[in-house]
């Protein structure tokens, strides 16, 4: 089942990226997709490391747009810091707890923190992330706790 899904996905990727629809080119595409699938199957034997899709699609899209708004706001703040004549830097390294259950959601949370300028995930431990802020204010913790809640909500079966 997973193999068929990967096959369809790879073929679609090939067709979209190549844009040339002649039998020979499509044949090359099919051959390379098959080789890729063979390698993936062999790698399954090396380790059983798999990521199952555990995120709720609709909630993820809503979260994506919220994240875009956050990125815009954070960018503006950091731009002001960069352009200020005396840069008001107030660096701080602090721990942020996270409440996601699955690895994938934790990755989403950590990447979201890094993607919003002004905060960077420095260290990921099992009980919390170490986050570095360039212009720290006490609101930062509340903002990150809010983000944590939102990411936990996009997990399938999470409290919405």
């Amino acid at each position: 089942m997973r193999t068929i899904g990967a096959f369809v996905f790879l073929i679609a990727l090939w067709l979209l990226l190549s844009g040339i629809y002649k039998p020979m080119i499509i044949g090359f595409g099919a051959a390379s997709v098959l080789v890729a699938l063979l390698v993936v199957r062999r790698m399954d034997g090396v380790d059983e490391d798999r990521v199952d899709q555990q995120l709720d699609a609709v909630a993820s899209i809503k979260y994506f747009f919220w994240l875009m708004a956050e990125i815009a706001k954070a960018n503006w703040n950091v731009t002001k810091v960069i352009l200020a004549p005396r840069m008001p830097i107030r660096q701080h390294l602090f721990a942020v707890p996270h409440s996601q259950k699955t690895d994938l959601a934790q990755v989403v949370f950590a990447n979201s923190i890094t993607l919003t300028p002004g905060t960077i995930t420095v260290e990921t431990e099992s009980d919390g992330f170490l986050v570095h802020a360039v212009a720290y204010s006490t609101d930062d913790r509340a903002a990150l706790a809010d983000m944590n809640r939102r990411v936990a909500a996009i997990e399938r079966g999470g409290s919405a």
């Binding site: 990125i71 815009a72 960018n75 950091v78 731009t79 960069i82 352009l83 840069m87 830097i89 660096q91 890094t114 993607l115 919003t116 300028p117 002004g118 905060t119 960077i120 570095h132 360039v134």
Partner: peptide, 29 residues
């Protein structure tokens, strides 16, 4: 504009840790 801002930040910020944040401006916005 934001790309240039990020590059200016990379040059202007005083130490490594703040430069990371400047780089992430041009990376995201």
């Amino acid at each position: 504009f934001f790309t240039v801002i990020g590059a200016i930040g990379i040059v202007r910020f005083p130490d490594f840790w703040s430069r990371l944040h400047a780089a992430s401006v041009s990376d995201s916005a």
